[in-house]
Design a protein around this nucleic acid. Structure first.
Lengths: 279, 279
DNA sequence: GAGTGGTCTAGACCACTGT
DNA sequence: CAGTGGTCTAGACCACTCC
């Protein structure tokens, strides 16, 4: 029997199949949404076992090129639009905190959460108080075991019922203790957001640092997010500092990378004019 | 014969195996670097076929928890340190462009490329001129078919011989035509970087926008980067604007997410003092 | 009911690693 | 050399979708 390995080319059967299909996707012969050959079909076409054809198709799934619709077939992935989450919102949220209450409410309903309209989201919040772990203590620059207010948010797209974002925020409890209203998750959504909450306890955020990386979701996360395989999770930690450089809050969020684009804007100081220059 | 599917639990054999191992990794029973059971070993232990054990292990690879060392076994992944690439460098690079030539050179050798020391990198550059595709024309706000200077860089860690970053930059050729030296890749590395190159043709970058997302690498990319499976690629597009809001350059880069952390700093304007406030 | 992917089995040969 | 992962085969039953 013709067993494994190469015949005329140097590649494996699997990589020949993935290569062929990848090419067809890239040159448009298989456009977004196009139905791919089924597993048995591919197996016949390339004279390989179904398992081999399947492996090839799964490779394309892991690359994010192909989506499987269980028991219906595989299609070329239609990349969803990426929602932009811009660092502009940091300043906008801060500005909003100074508006009178009714305006805070209005604006907050139109625009919130790092650039997504609240009309397109359903929020759920849960507060509790925890003890700082080593990692959190280091990140917040507090002692191990310090009491932290932990706030978890989940936002959902009401149309698709899909998760849009989850985030967890940590604030040293001592910073917000003076206003008990801040400890009550029943007050969510707080008009004016976190910046206004902090304002009520005399804290002004002066600098925000966003730390971004990515990783693959666990199977549980992939399921919760309804992420097709082959889509990473963007991992963002936002760290908020006050004027003294004190760490006030850290917030960890995850976003499916196929639906999210992060945007960061860095204004640069002008060059000195020739007269000012020293060289 | 005991065939597929559940026996007493509701899960598949595969998910039972991945679940068990995942738990052991998370609670530290299997620490970083620990050798996992081999495929035949797992198959015996769970009384499944080797293929099933294999599938389970590959699931963990895709989650980035486990690394396979071909023909030697699988180990719990040792997460590499993430190199920080900070948006601070944007301003620093701009400042450097104004230094006298010898200082530009020195500083450029110590610090370059978004926060990595040049001592730890080997660079290769390739320039050519291309015609703007639709996507590039839109991004650069120029007409379709405009001539663009394309510059590709590859940086390599000389110790490990592994890729550190690849990037491609596009500049409308008309903007840099007045200095032919800028069209010659032989002048790389240019002391003072792109900011200084642009300075020689009278262009000052005033704002940089970084757009970040992530995707899985293609198999070719994974091979080139020597990325273990289960590691996404951070995709960054940097867009540089001058004082008139004109798009000067776009630069696309990819970084392996397990070795990279992006950091963006957003200073916030202070709240108006009570006297300045209008409410 | 035909077709699809989801899961699984029980073999096989190979190239390579370690001792 | 025995052991490992890499690849592949030729079956199988299942749950589900689509017509």
């Amino acid at each position: 029997m013709a067993n494994q390995a190469a015949t005329m080319t140097n590649q494996t059967a699997t990589s020949r199949i993935t290569g062929d299909i990848r090419k067809k996707i890239q040159n448009g012969e298989l456009g977004p949404g196009a139905l791919l050959p089924s597993e048995p079909e591919l197996a016949r076409e390339y004279a390989v076992s179904r398992q081999t054809a399947r492996t090839a198709l799964q490779t394309l799934e892991r690359e994010g090129l192909v989506t499987v619709r269980a028991r219906r077939g595989r299609i070329v992935r239609v990349p969803p639009r990426r929602a932009v989450r811009s660092s502009d919102r940091h300043q906008e949220e801060k500005d909003r905190a100074m508006l009178p209450a009714h305006e805070r409410k209005e604006v907050g309903e139109a625009e919130t959460n790092f650039g997504m309209s609240i009309a397109d989201q359903q929020f759920a919040a849960a507060y509790d108080v925890i003890i700082a772990t080593e990692e959190l203590a280091r990140a917040l620059n507090v002692d191990l075991g310090t009491a932290l207010l932990r706030r978890k948010w989940v936002s959902t797209d009401p149309k698709t019922e899909r998760l849009l974002s989850t985030s967890v925020s940590y604030i040293p409890k001592s910073l917000v203790d003076s206003n008990p209203a801040l400890l009550d998750q029943g007050n969510e959504p707080w008009p004016g957001g976190t910046m206004h909450q902090l304002f009520t306890v005399g804290i002004e955020i002066m600098r925000i640092v966003d730390e971004v990386t990515a990783r693959m979701p666990t199977s549980a996360e992939a399921q919760a997010w309804e992420m097709p395989s082959g889509i990473p999770l963007l991992i963002c930690r936002r760290i908020s500092f006050d004027a003294d450089g004190r760490t006030i809050e850290i917030s960890d969020a995850g976003y499916p990378a196929d639906r999210t684009q992060l945007r960061f804007i860095t204004p640069l100081k002008p060059w000195p004019t020739p007269a000012e220059r020293i060289d």
